[in-house]
Nucleic acid binder design. Sequence first.
DNA 1: TGCAAGCCTGCACAACCGCGCAGGTGTCGT
DNA 2: ACGACACCTGCGCGGTTGTGCAGGCTTGCA
Lengths: 126, 126
Amino acid sequence: MHLLPADRAGHRTIDGHRVCEAIAGIGDTGRVRSWAERFGLLADPGRLALLLALHTTGPLAVTDLALATGMRDPAVSQALRLLRAAGVVEGERDGRVVRYRLTDPAVAEVLEHGVLGRAERAAGTG
Amino acid sequence: MHLLPADRAGHRTIDGHRVCEAIAGIGDTGRVRSWAERFGLLADPGRLALLLALHTTGPLAVTDLALATGMRDPAVSQALRLLRAAGVVEGERDGRVVRYRLTDPAVAEVLEHGVLGRAERAAGTG
DNA sequence: TGCAAGCCTGCACAACCGCGCAGGTGTCGT
DNA sequence: ACGACACCTGCGCGGTTGTGCAGGCTTGCA
């Protein structure tokens, strides 16, 4: 099983066969890139708090989200804009209020198994 | 249930009670911050590839990781430094070779349920 | 119709981050 | 002891990102 791209052949290796195994584990580069972007959306405390709020209580308005997270309205709007562009959340207009909800099941899964899961055994509180 | 911090009281709200629910869902701010940093480590394609490789094939040397990911040796070293400082990976010296392995079960869980899980139904391949 | 509320946008600033290059340290083989 | 190898570090650059402020647009209410 030789998965080494040609532009990297001819180099010295330590374990050799393990490299191919590692490449197989990494899998498609596009998928990795996609997930890196996804994780990037969760890498901001504000956005993560917004997503946690939306995940646990469902549809919420911008003002309430700002109140719950302590962020300014424009910051919340900006964060939601990114999340909306990534397809993670969706907003529904109800009069002059826009309620947002989580639409990406993959993100929900990560939040559930990661932040809200029992995985905190290694995370601690600080 | 009034979880609203005093510095935000007296403001107008849309749903009111839902705000407290959201705050409860967000939980401890320190945990959110901690997880945001954790996700930040996964937000780079290089680091994510490294972690995937370590997660699937176990202990790997820097050279092999560089070969598998297509990164330069210094870039791999730098990335591993960050991950080591965060307690996500650990390196064991074997002669002049240092083999790294994944030590954070929470990250492993996220990789398993996120990137490697069936959650790709929404991620696609590109 | 006039006013207030809710939400969105543009702009400019500062900070951070990842990368590549060059050079250093410790270890193994001859 | 000498050279080669594996790994680490400092420095500087370019790109990206989060943030605050001020202002505009749509909607609801009196």
